[in-house]
Amino acid sequence: MSEFLSNVVAWLKTDQALAIFKAALILLAGLLIARLISRRLKLRRLHEQQSMILRKVLVSVVLAVAVLWSLRELGLDMGVLLGAAGILTVAIGFASQTSASNIISGIFLMGERPFQIGDVVQVGQTTGYVLAIDFLAVKLRTFDNLLVRIPNETMLKSEVTNYTRFAIRRVDLQIGVAYKEDLARVREILFAIARRDPLALDEPSPLFLFKGFGASAIEIQFSVWSAQESFYPLRTRLYMDIKAAFDAEGIEIPFPHLSLYTGSATSPLPVQLVEKAEAGGAAQSSLGSGPLQPQSGV
């Protein structure tokens, strides 16, 4: 046992042990600095996502320098290592064109900043909160709590709608009223509803747009501005208030109508009435003793 200890002590005094100790110390210092950067670095002038990218780049650089320095202390020839790394990089570069494309797209996205972490965006059919903007992909949390990862290249090529960029939004309500209704009265009721609701912005003023004579109704668009965070509560509340006000005022919201013609615009559709079957007869029919008679026919 004492011989083993004396061997260990002797080994600790060698240059090799000193080099390993120095390498470990450098690696440890690198790790500590990287951890410090990762946890503490936050520049006020930068956005959250820019700070995150800066942190990741600095951590990678510090770790790379620490590893290379440690290897150098261990006596490895850096020239050979870097040369090998260069060849490896070219090989990896050819093999990972998609990743490279995503990284470059990510850099463009970060420079352009069409959205930030926390914004609500729509990409294709997906709408959700932006959770992270990384080198390779953007991560969204949809309203039904799913994580969607969209590659940066796709983000750059797609149409992206940011719902939360501006402080106010317009609620566009599509309304149909019957042809017999007085549109001036309808307009007055709609404006009164918007005036009563504190979430409906006073300015910009609401808009009443006549959209056209529809198949079953006169089509109207009533547009009301709201604060961005009040958009969904206001939209629901306005539709409910409009339904209640129209019911109270006797204004008809028509369902789709279908008019049948027999080929000539002037001739009425022929209608033939058939006498009602007697109660006893109907009972008899239900017993299966005779065919059922229709009550009316066309």
């Binding site: 106010i168 609701d197 504190p198 006073d202 300015e203 009040s230």
Partner: peptide
């Protein structure tokens, strides 16, 4: 009494959310 929200600014992009 909750006043109505309103927007005060040159356009819908620049301005401030206020009470009317």
């Amino acid at each position: 009494h909750r006043p109505s929200d309103t927007w005060f600014g040159p356009n819908s992009q620049h301005g401030e959310l206020c009470y009317a």
